[in-house]
Amino acid sequence: MKRESRGDESVEGLGPELGKLWDSAPVPKAPPWFATRTLARIRREESRVGVWFGLPRWVFIGFGAAVLAVGWLRWEREPALGDEEVFAALDAMVEEERENRWWAGL
C-alpha cells in the first residue's frame, strides 16, 4: 500500500518534484539466478565450516593438545641421572684419552 505522504513537501518525504525524479532511477531487481547461487554459496560455506587447510579442524586441535600435554609432562619430570651412568661416562672419557695417546705414540 502506497503512503499518501510520500510526495509531501514536508519533512516527511522528498517532495513531489524530487520524489518524481528519485523514482525515475529504477531500483535494480535481483537477477533470476540469485536465489540458486545464494543457496549454493551457503551450502559451500556450510561444508567449509570446521575444515582448516582441507583437514577437519579437530585433527589440528587434537595434535596441538597432544603436544602441549607431552610438553607439560616432560617439564614436570626431574632429569634422572644415576651414579653408574656418570662413572660409565667418565670411564669412557679416560679410555678414549688413553686410546688417543696410544695412537699418537705417547
Binding site: P28, K29, A30, P31, F34, A35, T38, L39
Partner: peptide
Amino acid sequence: EEALRDFILRYQDRVYGTVA
C-alpha cells in the same frame, strides 16, 4: 533449506535493490 529458499525469494529484490 526449503524455508531458506522461500525466505531468499521473499527478500531478494529488496536486499539486492538496497545494496545496489
